[in-house]
């Protein structure tokens, strides 16, 4: 499905989303090994520069996973993240980068299977897009 060397960055918040990521592994669920997680305390901490930096360095796509609506550990962090992500998408359009290589979603605690579904779908889409753009994927 995906080239092993087309790397995907998955930013997760420390709370619900990270727990979902962990659960996938603890349940022995398999997902593409090109998915590389980076944890931040809250997705509201990621400004567009940090998201686009991953693409600049050659990531095929960047997936941001935070707490479900209303369940943010910091109460308003996922709202802040949504605002910043919209700015990121706007910048991506300016830069001519396909929006399909970026995605913001949420993941509840313990949702290992959902994590796998999300990253599989996203990895396939993002890698397809980065290829279509004729970009060199490291």
């Amino acid at each position: 499905m995906s080239e092993p060397d087309s790397r995907i960055i998955v930013y997760t918040c420390n709370w619900s989303a990270y727990s979902g990521l962990e659960t996938a592994g603890s349940q022995g669920l398999s997902y593409p090994a090109n998915v590389h997680p980076i944890r931040v305390m809250c997705l509201g901490r990621l400004h567009p520069g940090l998201i686009l930096k991953a693409l600049e360095l050659g990531a095929a796509g960047v997936l941001l996973l935070g707490c479900p609506p209303g369940e943010c550990h910091y109460l308003f962090g996922n709202t802040r993240a949504e605002e910043l992500f919209q700015q990121t998408l706007a910048l991506a359009r300016l830069l001519g980068i396909s929006e399909k290589r970026l995605k913001l979603d949420s993941l509840a605690s313990g949702q290992g299977q959902h994590f796998v579904t999300l990253v599989r779908q996203f990895a396939e889409q993002a890698i397809g897009e980065s290829r279509a753009a004729g970009q060199e994927v490291p």
Binding site: N14, V40, M41, C42, G44, R45, L46, H47, G49, L50, H73, Y74, F76, G77, R80, L84
Partner: peptide
């Protein structure tokens, strides 16, 4: 420690405690 302030600081003056830019 959420780091939301660091993401918004226009001059990059704020270091988020868990991980800086």
């Amino acid at each position: 420690g959420c780091g939301v302030c660091a993401a918004r600081c226009p001059s990059g003056a704020i270091a988020a405690g868990y991980s800086t830019d």
